[in-house]
Structure formats: structure tokens, C-alpha cells
Design a protein around this nucleic acid. Structure first.
Length: 260
DNA sequence: ATGCCTCGCACAGCGAGA
């Protein structure tokens, strides 16, 4: 079972890339982020024509998350929105289940600039995610928390092309990393690092300054596995070549394969 | 120190991204 997380940076601008991905990779479950559209203009007809269906939680212009699975598969919707703050207006979390596996698609706040209310919002959102991640573990089922976590886990070149270039970014701050580690240490497994303990595995390359061409990327799209999911881990990786195609997102699809 | 590029919005540049 191939589960993919893909930050699209606009589902309408990326529709040819997305349909191509579905046809070429045939994922069992796709977690989307930054769809950047209101619910009523989500291009569900185009996705159904490509053989997929799903659930989405949109927002005009910004954010937005979704879950897709092949038509005919029983993808159920468990939750829209992250619990813990009824006043939070950002569409950043949606959760479903397929074949007994719980899957959350999350778009964690970027948090820049550091020292502003945006950074405080990021940390508060991460604390809400921690609480929900605990609730999920208590179910003792296979679960995957997949998405754009907007955290570069370490200073290693395996995670970031240049510490110096990124050191003041919200993705690299000790507080962001501590919150990420706190969630991991509840009992979640970082699927990419479980399968690739060493070596650069980047998931994002900025559009500017020729970052893609010189492989100046970093790792911020993560799939975290509950113990029951980690027991079934077969492989994980990044479908990197989609980043180099025409009208690409600045993120590459990142995936995990679980034993059926 | 800022722009680099790209998106959506709305139809001109601007906010946001990371």
C-alpha cells in the first residue's frame, strides 16, 4: 500500500502534474496540502475522470488539505480540522481511514518570521498536533501522520543543503525541532529516516536562486508511523523527478509503502 | 538587507510561501 504526501502549491495550477502522478504512480492514498482553493472549486470532476475520489478541506487562496484514493476503495472521513482551537480558521488538517489504516494529511504552519505571532501560532499548532497524536496512539491502530511539517529535523547535510542559509528560518529553530521531536518520542517513526538513516533526502527546493538546479533543498515533508504502521514498513522515498518537470510544485511527492 | 520564483486574487501589484 503506497501512501503519498504531496504539497501541491495550488491544486488548479498543478492539475496536470497531479493527474500525471496518479496515472503513473497509482498511489493507494494521496495526502495533499496547499490546495489553495475554496471547497466549491476543488477540481473533483477532473480527479474522478482520472479514477480517484476523496475528501477535502479547502480555503480560498491559502492552505487547504485533502485525501484521495482510487474510486471504489472505502476511504472514510474521520475528522476535518485539528482539535484544540475552535477559533482557528486555517484549513490545515484532514483525517481519514483506508483498509484499517488511519491517515492524517497535515499542513503545519510555516512560522516565519521568527519572533512574530506567526511563529507563536506554529508552536501552538504543534502542541495541538502533539495532543492529537497522543489520542491516535491510544487507539493502537496503524496510523500515518503525513504532510508538510515545515520542520527541518537536524543540522545534518542529510536534511538541509546549508545550515548557514537557513539558520534564522522558522523551519530550523530549536523550538520547532523540539516540538517535532516531542511528537516523535511519543512513539512515532519517521519513515524516511527509518529506511534511509544516512544520505541527503530532500523534499523541497525553492523556486528562486536556482535551488533545484544546484540541489539546494531540504527535508520538511514527513510521514510519521504509529508502532502498528511501522511494523508494516516496507520502503519510503521521494519521487524527486516530479520536482524537475514543467510547472512543478516546489515540493516533491514523498511516500511510504506498507505491507498489505 | 533584499530579491530571486510562483501561487491566488483579481485584473495591479501584493501577500504568502520557505
Amino acid at each position: 500500500m503506497k501512501i503519498v504526501t504531496y504539497n501541491l502549491n495550488g491544486i488548479r495550477a498543478r492539475l496536470p502534474r497531479l493527474v500525471e502522478y496518479l496515472e503513473e504512480q497509482k498511489p493507494d492514498l494521496l495526502c495533499l496540502q496547499e490546495i489553495k482553493c475554496a471547497d466549491e472549486v476543488f477540481p473533483i470532476d477532473d480527479l474522478r475522470a482520472a479514477g480517484y475520489d476523496g475528501h477535502w478541506h479547502g480555503q480560498k487562496g491559502f492552505n487547504g488539505v485533502a485525501l484521495l484514493a482510487p474510486q471504489g476503495r472505502d476511504l472514510s472521513l474521520r475528522r476535518v480540522g485539528l482539535p484544540g482551537d475552535p477559533d482557528d480558521s486555517h484549513s490545515r488538517y484532514i483525517e481519514g481511514a483506508l483498509d484499517g489504516i488511519i491517515v492524517g494529511s497535515l499542513y503545519l504552519p510555516n512560522g516565519n518570521p521568527v519572533g512574530t505571532e506567526k511563529f507563536a501560532y506554529k508552536l501552538a499548532w504543534m502542541d495541538r498536533l502533539r495532543a492529537h497524536a497522543m489520542e491516535l496512539l491510544a487507539e493502537e491502530k496503524p496510523a500515518v501522520l503525513a504532510g508538510d511539517w515545515n520542520v527541518i529535523p537536524t543540522d545534518s547535510h542529510d536534511d538541509v543543503f546549508s545550515v548557514r542559509a537557513m539558520q534564522h528560518d522558522a523551519l530550523m529553530q530549536p523550538e520547532s525541532r523540539a516540538a517535532f521531536r516531542t511528537i516523535l518520542h511519543l512513539g512515532w517513526t519517521d519513515a524516511i529516516r527509518a529506511r534511509h538513516p544516512e544520505g541527503a533526502v530532500y523534499t523541497f527546493w525553492d523556486y528562486t536562486a536556482g535551488c533545484w538546479q544546484r540541489d539546494a533543498g531540504f527535508r520538511i515533508d514527513h510521514l510519521l508511523l504509529s508502532p502498528q504502521a511501522a511494523d508494516r514498513l516496507l520502503d519510503a522515498g521521494v519521487d524527486k523527478d516530479y520536482r524537475g518537470r514543467e510547472k512543478a510544485s516546489d515540493h516533491a511527492p514523498t511516500w511510504v509503502s506498507l505491507e498489505d
